[in-house]
Every structure is written in structure tokens, then in C-alpha cells.
Design a protein around this nucleic acid. Structure first.
Ligand SMILES: NC(=O)c1ccc[n+]([C@@H]2O[C@H](COP(=O)([O-])OP(=O)(O)OC[C@H]3O[C@@H](n4cnc5c(N)ncnc54)[C@H](O)[C@@H]3O)[C@@H](O)[C@H]2O)c1
Ligand SMILES: NC(=O)c1ccc[n+]([C@@H]2O[C@H](COP(=O)([O-])OP(=O)(O)OC[C@H]3O[C@@H](n4cnc5c(N)ncnc54)[C@H](O)[C@@H]3O)[C@@H](O)[C@H]2O)c1
Lengths: 204, 204
DNA sequence: ACAATTATGTTAGATGTTTAACATTGCAAA
DNA sequence: TTTGCAATGTTAAACATCTAACATAATTGT
């Protein structure tokens, strides 16, 4: 299958979560317009996305929820588990760690890293909290695939380099500092302040 | 001026933050390619954005940082302060509240709302923490313009309706539950899980 | 068996965004 | 002056994404 558009991948993630909810509710089939309504999209968009992943439905019953969930999983899920580290165990890093600790199925936050021991005890929420000096060694020994950056912005770049050098292939940057990663590493950035300012602008 | 593209607005926010840093460092002028490098964009994109906001630079010295900061501010900043409420003072809501409490210049988080008193004392970080029953009254009495939703996903829709009915014009939804707002209200959504799954997909 | 219905599947056009190409300007050195 | 340069400013093409139009197929009632 060809590489999917970013927006389609994002929606696949959302489709699946909604589909799981519907399945739990006892539903077994769903129409494109139903799925679309739940996500506030159009049915065309849903069908187009499913076309791209080469999934077919039935004309009279729509899509079979269970097999669609599996089909999406085959595309967007990792083979085994994905080990994740969070660098910067402050307010934000801890919130994320806590969140994935409860919910993440394939995504395992297996360590957090800090610079000042004062900010983090040796264990947070069952996750070991280690000094930044042990980062690279830990990544290599534990087959860590993804890194989350939640340090103060001035530290973001150095942390990014440490992650890349240790062999990390995917980075999530929640710092307002824009980063640039080498070829072969995927970077996703989210900037809260920008979001706020954008909302304000479009309020008018 | 015509309404700006979303992506341009996002970049303006980032331009300004970088420009402030450069100004603090003592710089007074900046070239489009310098600004571009700091944000990992191209100089063309920078010039195009600045063209859209009708800002001109000098051929030999580039753009005058101070006046550009002001110019961007005139476009994306609110007239006065923007009052914000956070609905759902759990881990995530508190992290955001704390963050803006320290940093927000025009953006003031003036209250948080909870359902279970156990999760939140009456004051967090100097911000009053109120029961959800007081939400609508508070919004109207305090000219609140923006609302941040950080409740459990099942509660997101009802909270959104409460915000809209109280007259809120801009909403930030950090819940994985997709929302749909009425005409005239601007909605921005960010879904952490989707981000993680997207990174994993593009790692390969 | 066959038309009508109602959904899916596909293609082409519209829109939004980025990138590339080119024109223009102001300064500095010859 | 005037010419070259190095930057900005503008337009047009390329690319990504979304939307609309249409073709196709399975079921149901007759
Ligand atoms: N809190 C939020 O809601 C929020 C929202 C959006 C973005 N952010 C961004 O996330 C980042 C962290 O925010 P926060 O509020 O959690 O700040 P924080 O000060 O609470 O946490 C920062 C943590 O990073 C650690 N740290 C510093 N340098 C380090 C290094 N080199 N290696 C490892 N750890 C290091 C510190 O020990 C500290 O625990 C900031 O860049 C901030 O802009 C925060
Ligand atoms: N923690 C994270 O890192 C994180 C990241 C991304 C998204 N989210 C999303 O943010 C939301 C909150 O996450 P969290 O980890 O902070 O959860 P949490 O359980 O710590 O906090 C939820 C808070 O919402 C309050 N609440 C519940 N119903 C409410 C209502 N109707 N009105 C007002 N308040 C109400 C509860 O009292 C609680 O304090 C969830 O939807 C979650 O999916 C969290």
C-alpha cells in the first residue's frame, strides 16, 4: 500500500477509537455517514479514507466494525509494543506519563528523565524516573522507539540531539522551541501557545 | 486586511516569539532567511507571510524586529486581555493552568472548574477553582472569551454546550472526543493519542 | 426476474498551502 | 553615475487535501 496522507492517518486513529466505543455498545455494523457524524466529518471523506486503506464494506449493512478495527490496527499499530521515554518530568511530562500509563495499549512509557532530582522522585506512577545522564544508555538497552520532549524550551534542542544520537526514530516535541530532525527521524510538534493565539485570532 | 490562512496565523505566533528572543539578545534587524532558519522554514515562506500582513522590510537590513513584533501583535493580539476558563481541573487542566499563569501575557486563566471537589482545592496556583454548576454564571459575569476543555471525554460534549450557551466564542478541546460547535464559535482540537499513533505510523 | 432504492467506490474538480521562478529595489563599490 | 549584488516583493506553478459528482453494486419489494 502506498504511504498514506498525514490527515488520513490522523483520522484512522480517530475512526478506530470511535469504532471501539460503538463495538462496546453492541453495534456490529456501521454506515459511512454514521461514522462521519460521530466525528463531524462527511461520509465521502470516510469512504475515501477507507478506500485508501483498501477496506470494503457491504452495500446494505455498511462496514463491519470488528474487522475494520483490526484492519486499521494492521496499518497504524506497531508490530509489538512501542517503548517510549519522556524527557522532562515536570508538570506536563508527568501528566502525559500518567495518561499513557493508564491508557496506552501498544504505547508503553517505560521511563522518564529529569535534570533536577528535586522535581521527580525515583518512581512516578510506577514509571522509573532517571537522571538525564542515563538517557542514551537506557534507550539503547531497552529498544526505545519514541521520545517525548517536555523540558524547558532552551533545553529542547540538546535533548533532541541526545535522542537522535541514541537511535530514536520518532519524536514528539511539546516545547515551543521549533526543532529540526535529521532525515529518517519523524518529528511531530505541538505548541499550546500558538493554539491559543490562533483561537483568539479567529474569534475575530 | 483579508482573513489570513490558518497556517500563516500559526507561524505569526511563532515568528513573534522568536523575534522577542532575538530582541532580548540585542538584535535589532533580521533577514528573512535568518528568521526562517530559526524556525526551520524557508525564507520564501517568511516573506510571503509578511507580505500577507502587509509588512515591509529594508533591502539591506532586512526587517526591523521591534516594529515587526508590534505589527504582528496588532494582528493576532486581542484588544485587551482575554479571560479564559479551564473546565476539568485534573492533571492536564492543572498543567495548562499553571503554565499560563506564569507565562500568559494577554491570556488570563481566571478560573478552573471541577465536578468532584476532591480533585481540586478551592484555589490552585492562585486561580479560583469552582464547581461546574457556577460555570455559566461566572462566564457571563467575567467576560470570559475562551474555554479549555480538559474533562473526561464522555463529559466533553455537555461541557462544550455549557460553554457555548454562556456565550464563549473560542474553545480548545484537549479531549479525544470530537466536537462540533455552532457557526460563529471557533474550535481547536488536539488529540495526544492521535499524535502518538501518527508518529508511530511514519516511523515506518 | 427486475426495477427502485440506498448504500459504497471512484474519478475529477475545487480549495488551501507550499514551493519555485522571477521582478524589483536600494545600497556600495568602481 | 552606473553597475553588481543581495536582499525583498510578487506571481505562477506544484502539491496536498477536501468536496462534489457520478458510476457501481447489493438488497428488497413487486
Ligand atoms: N505545562 C503545560 O501545560 C505545558 C503546555 C504546553 C507546553 N509546555 C511545555 O512543556 C515544557 C515543560 O513544561 P512544564 O510546565 O512541565 O515545565 P516544568 O518546569 O514543570 O518541567 C520541566 C522539567 O524538565 C526537567 N529538565 C530540565 N532540563 C532538562 C534536561 N536537560 N533533561 C531532562 N530534564 C530536564 C526539569 O527537571 C523539570 O522537571 C516547556 O517547554 C513548556 O513550554 C508545557
Ligand atoms: N493527562 C494528559 O496528559 C492528557 C493528555 C491528553 C489529553 N488528555 C485528556 O484530557 C482530559 C483530562 O485528562 P486528565 O488526565 O487531566 O484526567 P483527570 O481525570 O485527571 O481530570 C479530569 C477532571 O475533570 C473533572 N470533571 C469531570 N467531569 C466534569 C464536568 N462535567 N465538569 C467539570 N469538571 C469535570 C474531574 O473532576 C477531574 O478533575 C481527558 O479527556 C484526557 O483524555 C489528557
Amino acid at each position: 500500500m502506498k504511504v498514506l496522507p498525514e490527515k488520513t492517518v490522523e483520522r484512522l486513529s480517530k475512526y478506530r477509537r470511535i469504532l471501539n466505543v460503538e463495538y462496546e455498545r453492541g453495534e456490529r455494523y456501521i454506515f459511512s455517514h454514521e461514522l462521519a457524524n460521530l466525528l463531524h466529518l462527511t461520509s465521502v471523506q470516510v469512504r475515501r479514507d477507507l478506500m485508501l486503506i483498501e477496506y470494503s464494506g457491504s452495500h446494505k449493512r455498511g462496514y463491519e466494525i470488528k474487522s475494520l478495527i483490526e484492519h486499521i490496527g494492521n496499518i497504524i499499530d506497531p508490530k509489538g509494543d512501542i517503548n517510549i521515554v519522556i524527557v522532562g518530568m515536570g508538570n506536563f511530562g508527568k501528566a502525559i506519563a500518567h495518561y499513557f500509563n493508564k491508557r496506552g495499549k501498544h504505547y508503553k512509557v517505560i521511563a522518564g528523565f529529569y535534570r533536577n532530582a528535586s522535581h521527580c522522585s525515583t518512581v512516578f506512577d510506577g514509571i522509573p524516573c532517571l537522571p538525564i545522564s542515563e538517557l542514551q544508555d537506557f534507550i539503547q538497552k531497552n529498544d526505545v522507539k519514541m521520545g517525548v520532549i517536555t523540558v524547558p524550551p532552551q533545553q529542547a534542542e540538546i535533548v533532541m540531539h541526545q535522542l537522535v544520537e541514541a537511535g530514536i526514530k520518532g519524536i514528539l516535541n511539546y516545547t515551543p522551541k521549533p526543532l529540526k530532525v535529521p532525515e529518517g527521524v519523524f518529528l511531530e510538534e505541538y505548541d499550546v501557545i500558538t493554539s491559543f493565539e490562533k483561537v483568539n485570532y479567529f474569534i475575530g
